[in-house]
Amino acid sequence: MAADPDEELVRRVGAGEPAAVQTLVARKLPRILALAVRMLGDAAEAEDVAQETFVRIWRHAASWRRGNARFDSWIHRVTLNLCYDRLRRRREWVTGDLPDVADPAPLPDAHSEEEAHRVERALQAIAPRQREAIVLVYYQGMSNIEAAATLQISVDALESLLARGRRSLQAILAEDGADE
């Protein structure tokens, strides 16, 4: 396995260096926050998840050792687990739909604000594992190998999730377009 670009920084965080913590947060927060917003569809909840993710990093940095996955994969896994905890609580306590809009910023492939909202709503409507795979690959920019490691599945299983997710999104968007 190639050297982990975050290994030294995590070691310094574990040693209690305040500057290392600031650097790690500055480096990772935008992607972690974007992941949580897209998974939860709620910016305030996403901020809570991001904060909890960094608390866990701070608590476990001293004992973190490079293993099968890079630190970036591990931090994404922690964030996804926290998102799923919140999504489970929603199902237990709340009935109703997820919010319509996850992130007010247009998606990279959206041609208009309206289209961006349609894509976000569709993303929230597909199966959670499919959404997770799509978000990691298409929005977080992970390779299939990195995303599979983060999800702790094979690359073939990831590619299957991506294919099913794309088909689900296309069906939802086609149905949504037919309703207009």
Rank of each mutant, 00 (worst) to 15 (best):
residue 1 M to Q: 11
residue 2 A to R: 07
residue 3 A to H: 13
residue 5 P to T: 00
residue 5 P to L: 01
residue 5 P to I: 00
residue 10 V to D: 10
residue 11 R to L: 11
residue 11 R to H: 05
residue 14 G to N: 10
residue 15 A to K: 14
residue 16 G to A: 15
residue 16 G to S: 15
residue 17 E to P: 09
residue 20 A to V: 12
residue 22 Q to H: 06
residue 23 T to H: 11
residue 23 T to C: 10
residue 23 T to M: 12
residue 23 T to Q: 15
residue 24 L to F: 15
residue 26 A to R: 14
residue 26 A to I: 04
residue 26 A to C: 02
residue 28 K to F: 15
residue 28 K to S: 13
residue 31 R to H: 15
residue 36 A to V: 12
residue 36 A to F: 11
residue 40 L to T: 11
residue 40 L to V: 10
residue 42 D to T: 04
residue 42 D to N: 08
residue 43 A to I: 01
residue 45 E to H: 07
residue 45 E to V: 07
residue 46 A to W: 02
residue 46 A to R: 04
residue 48 D to E: 13
residue 49 V to E: 03
residue 50 A to T: 00
residue 50 A to V: 00
residue 51 Q to D: 02
residue 55 V to M: 10
residue 56 R to T: 10
residue 57 I to M: 13
residue 58 W to A: 06
residue 58 W to T: 10
residue 61 A to F: 04
residue 63 S to R: 09
residue 65 R to H: 12
residue 68 N to Q: 15
residue 70 R to V: 00
residue 70 R to W: 01
residue 73 S to C: 07
residue 73 S to T: 08
residue 76 H to C: 08
residue 76 H to E: 01
residue 76 H to Y: 11
residue 77 R to Y: 05
residue 79 T to M: 13
residue 79 T to L: 10
residue 80 L to G: 05
residue 81 N to E: 04
residue 81 N to T: 07
residue 83 C to I: 06
residue 86 R to I: 10
residue 86 R to N: 14
residue 90 R to K: 15
residue 91 R to H: 04
residue 92 E to V: 11
residue 92 E to I: 07
residue 93 W to A: 13
residue 93 W to F: 08
residue 95 T to V: 03
residue 95 T to D: 11
residue 95 T to R: 12
residue 98 L to P: 04
residue 98 L to R: 14
residue 101 V to S: 03
residue 103 D to F: 15
residue 104 P to Y: 08
residue 106 P to R: 09
residue 106 P to H: 00
residue 107 L to H: 01
residue 107 L to P: 02
residue 108 P to F: 03
residue 108 P to D: 08
residue 113 E to V: 05
residue 115 E to V: 00
residue 117 H to N: 09
residue 121 R to F: 01
residue 123 L to R: 08
residue 124 Q to G: 13
residue 127 A to D: 09
residue 128 P to T: 02
residue 129 R to Q: 09
residue 132 E to Y: 05
residue 132 E to R: 04
residue 133 A to V: 01
residue 135 V to C: 10
residue 137 V to Y: 02
residue 139 Y to L: 14
residue 139 Y to V: 00
residue 140 Q to N: 13
residue 140 Q to T: 02
residue 140 Q to I: 07
residue 141 G to W: 15
residue 143 S to T: 14
residue 144 N to D: 14
residue 147 A to D: 06
residue 148 A to Q: 15
residue 150 T to I: 10
residue 153 I to C: 13
residue 156 D to T: 14
residue 158 L to D: 00
residue 159 E to F: 00
residue 160 S to T: 14
residue 161 L to A: 09
residue 165 G to S: 04
residue 166 R to M: 05
residue 167 R to T: 04
residue 170 Q to R: 14
residue 175 E to P: 00
residue 175 E to W: 09
residue 177 G to N: 07
residue 178 A to Y: 05
residue 178 A to L: 12
residue 179 D to V: 10
residue 180 E to P: 15
